[in-house]
Design a protein around this nucleic acid. Structure first.
Lengths: 338, 338
DNA sequence: ATTAGCACTCTCATTGTGACAGTGCTAACC
DNA sequence: GGTTAGCACTGTCACAATGAGAGTGCTAAT
């Protein structure tokens, strides 16, 4: 627990540093005027704050810079709660209702809005049911031995796949088979479909097996393909500008599983989590902070909304934005789920 | 037309510069040994090449660097034709056949492969029929007044949209309506469906109108959402590493219409085009080169395969890769089109 | 036309310098 | 005891000077 004045000093340092990105001097804090003490006194307190790890200075005679621990303290105790302005929330909602699309498009919109309001990189993942069920099956012949299989799953998700048939068939035959299969398989999950398919005749089996594969693939993904927006903001951050830390992060974001940059799995739904710098578990993220929220019901459809930026980010605004957009996404999903 | 020797010198400079990224000196060229003349002679020729604009040097006493014009000459006259090795082509084909997916997945695969073999950024666009037709329509009720509309278009494309109905209906009623609509609308294009819809009763009209909108939206997009892979390679290029040129490009690639970085519209199908540095029309690309090919038939499904890198790129390998993958994509599309 | 020779030019890394910013400490003060 | 003025101290930063090195451009000889 810090004394009243030291808290003010820490708050001042962080406020100033967020605004200017320049180490802040004791004189600067004194000039803010709310403390009524001299720079020397502030220096004494700064020395103490530094001893306890809330701030550092890059070299002997530079101003002070908040440490990860300092940001954490600020977040926990000092930061004023912030909310997006009503008109701005209205604009956002309006845009969501404009888009007559599906979950994918909403997620794109959310990511874009988030990136632009926070001036940082935003990642939104599309919700997936942990146990997707088949809602409807459709098969269209492309060539005599090649068919397009369209599977509609719970939660307005549509998956398609080109299927190679061992023997040529007609569309009529397909239609008959699919009609039956729909009766048989509707509402089932991947493994159940796989079980049933073993007993079916050749053509039916091929279709059912492919369907089962689609469902299993869906299930094995805990989270959908993440949508990343606002890479440019990350690149223009003066403190990274082409540095090695950024390279590392880009590599993760471009890699197999970009979402691992964000600790989504550990989250409760409807709560918001902030990881500051070294608090992040993966090394590529140690110089960045992430603000993340999970939306949707854990049992059903669940996805994540997150922002990645430098530790020197406007946490208030970012948290407000992430929270709000996670809420919006949650409601959108709720309304369209089955 | 350059003399034999000057061509050799230009070729030597480019070869050396591609390999090392360092301005190349007359001595270096002499040491290659194929010319049998002294560095002084080479210097004379270099002065001439420079006068004609094929090379420059950054300052008085640095080696020579190829100019855009120099690269162009190299490309046109000097570059040995290259093809991907047979085993490598086999690996690629194998991977395509492994992916039992649809066009989107092939495009992703193509972009990833291209980025990784050329060590540069790759953009692949998904083919779109300029005049898409409706193949099949499916409507599933989510809520009593909200339905998921799934439209299957020509070329294995599936589009979906959540549709708000003015009045609640049952799935049975929907099924009956959709059965009829499928008969009515199959094989038609957007405007034709729009025409028909005007005459239909309420529920039918809503569905048909939404379908027409989907088709029109599809048509208005000349090219699909581009798939971009390998951003990291661009960032690690030593000559740009956080520079302003790169920023500009990233901004274009992140913007509304990233594909405008690539001059796709002007291309013939099955031809390959290279734009070197200043030959590019948009300013953000002036320091980069792009190699691009169009695949598919212009009348039907058409998309693009392209690579963006520094002007100092391995044109031989890049062209070979782009050409090959455009060919593969073309065949994949052909096989799955209707 | 080619070449050896050499002066010349420009870069780059290193060092030095002074201005400057801001601290840390000490001693005085309330 | 907490606060403050004063001042030495420490580090950065921008700039200039220096010398080594690389490679050219020119000239005169072959």
């Amino acid at each position: 627990m810090l004394s009243q004045r030291r808290e003010s000093i820490l708050k001042g340092i962080i406020g100033e540093y967020l605004a200017t990105a320049v180490p802040v001097a004791s004189l600067t804090i004194a000039r803010i005027g709310t403390l009524g003490v001299s720079p020397a006194t502030i220096r004494n307190d700064m020395a103490l704050l530094e001893e306890e790890g809330y701030i550092t200075h890059p070299y002997t005679s530079a101003g002070r810079v908040p440490s990860d621990k300092g940001y954490r303290y600020y977040l926990e105790w000092l930061m004023p709660l912030e909310a997006l302005s009503l008109p701005y929330r209205r604009t956002i909602l309006h845009q969501f209702h404009q888009v007559e699309g599906d979950i994918d498009e909403w997620a794109h919109l959310a990511a874009t809005l988030l990136a632009n309001t926070t001036n940082n990189l935003a990642i939104v993942t599309i919700p997936r049911a942990t146990q997707p069920r088949l809602r409807h099956l459709e098969v269209l012949l492309i060539h005599p031995d090649r068919a397009l299989l369209v599977a509609v799953l719970g939660g307005a998700r549509v998956r398609r796949q080109v299927l190679r048939l061992t023997d040529p068939v007609s569309q009529d035959r397909i239609n008959a088979v699919v009609l039956l299969l729909n009766d048989e398989l509707q509402g089932l999950r991947g493994p159940q479909i796989a079980d049933k398919s073993a007993l079916l005749p050749n053509l039916e089996r091929q279709i059912a097996e492919a369907t089962a594969r689609i469902l299993s693939a869906e299930e094995s993904l805990q989270l959908g393909e993440p949508i990343i927006e606002g890479r440019r903001y990350l690149m223009t951050q003066p403190e990274f500008y082409g540095g090695a830390r950024m390279q590392e992060l880009i590599e993760v974001l471009e890699g197999e599983n970009p979402i691992e940059a964000v600790p989504l799995n550990t989250l409760e739904e409807n709560s918001i989590t902030v990881m500051i710098g070294s608090e992040n578990s993966i090394t590529a993220m140690q110089s960045f902070s992430v603000v993340v929220a999970r939306y949707g019901k854990r049992s059903g459809l669940t996805g994540g909304v997150s922002v990645i930026g430098p530790t020197r980010m406007d946490y208030g605004r970012t948290i407000a934005s992430v929270k709000y957009l996670a809420g919006v996404m949650g409601r959108m999903v709720e309304n369209s789920s089955d």
